[in-house]
């Protein structure tokens, strides 16, 4: 099939970017979206033009590297699917496609469609862990965890850190990402000793990194390739209020 692609090109963080239009004549419906970009790049190189830079690695929807906004939707139109698993059969012959990077001041564009998501790492560094020294752990079955809690913790822990929640949020808020980690650990008995300090610290870092606030639009939940629920945001709010009260 034939497609018209409008791709965001930007040489570096400090330079201005613009859309560049390319017509692709023979796109196979069996290609993934990223394979379609590969094909574009092969053609660009052959014609002596620099290829489009985009992040990708595992191409099976788990590493969280890839992510572009396709016609206004992070990771494209298919539910619970990352851009690498989105296939071109989701599009029609003759369609126009706009491809943009995640837009947020906490995710500055590195080049073309690549953004710098180290702000997510810094949120985790500020408390997204359970302090347990290697070798100091008790036998694993000495800490029983109710299955219901373990399952809920897992649902939150499924986050791949791709940043689609931030990209989708009209406020560029990172509440879903932060809440997922806070809830994963807060739901488990192992996470209790640091529970309050963790939420206070992670929320502070989240704010300092320049993300927006949550106004409960639910766009993040819709865009999340792992379908993480905004109920975790509600849960984090509660944790945060309790922790603030106890701290004072």
């Amino acid at each position: 099939m034939k497609l018209t692609l409008h791709v965001w090109r930007q040489k570096s963080t400090s330079q201005k970017g613009a859309f560049e239009t390319h017509v692709m004549d023979s796109v196979s419906p069996d290609m993934s979206f990223l394979e379609m970009l590969d094909e574009l790049n092969q053609a660009l190189i052959t014609n002596g033009k620099e290829p489009v830079a985009f992040d990708h690695d595992c191409r099976e929807g788990i590493c969280g590297s890839c992510g572009v906004v396709i016609n206004g939707r992070p990771h494209g139109p298919q539910r619970a699917t990352t851009a690498c698993q989105l296939h071109m059969r989701s599009y029609q012959d003759g369609q126009e496609i706009w491809v943009e990077p995640w837009r947020a001041s906490a995710f500055p564009v590195v080049k073309d469609l690549m953004v710098d998501r180290t702000s997510f790492d810094r949120i985790i560094q500020s408390g997204g862990f359970i302090s347990v020294r290697t070798g100091s752990a008790p036998d694993a079955n000495e800490i029983p965890v109710p299955k219901v809690d373990a399952d809920k913790a897992f649902d939150a822990a499924a986050c791949i850190g791709c940043g689609a929640c931030v990209a989708a949020c009209p406020n560029a808020s990172a509440m879903l990402f932060t809440a997922a980690k806070v809830s994963h650990m807060g739901l488990l008995p192992q996470g209790q000793p640091e529970r309050e300090q963790r939420v206070l610290s992670m929320v502070s870092t989240m704010d300092e990194e320049g993300f927006g606030s949550c106004t409960n639009h639910k766009e993040c939940q819709e865009a999340c390739p792992k379908e993480i629920s905004i109920d975790y945001i509600s849960r984090m709010n509660r944790d945060y209020v309790c922790a603030s009260k106890n701290k004072g």
């Binding site: 706009w98 837009r103 406020n171 808020s173 320049g210 927006g212 639910k218 766009e219």
Partner: peptide, 16 residues
């Protein structure tokens, strides 16, 4: 929130 997204999207599709 405004500061958090200084450059907007060319295309937006609101889902939820």
């Amino acid at each position: 929130n405004r500061k958090a997204r200084p450059v907007g999207y060319k295309k937006t599709a609101r889902e939820a």
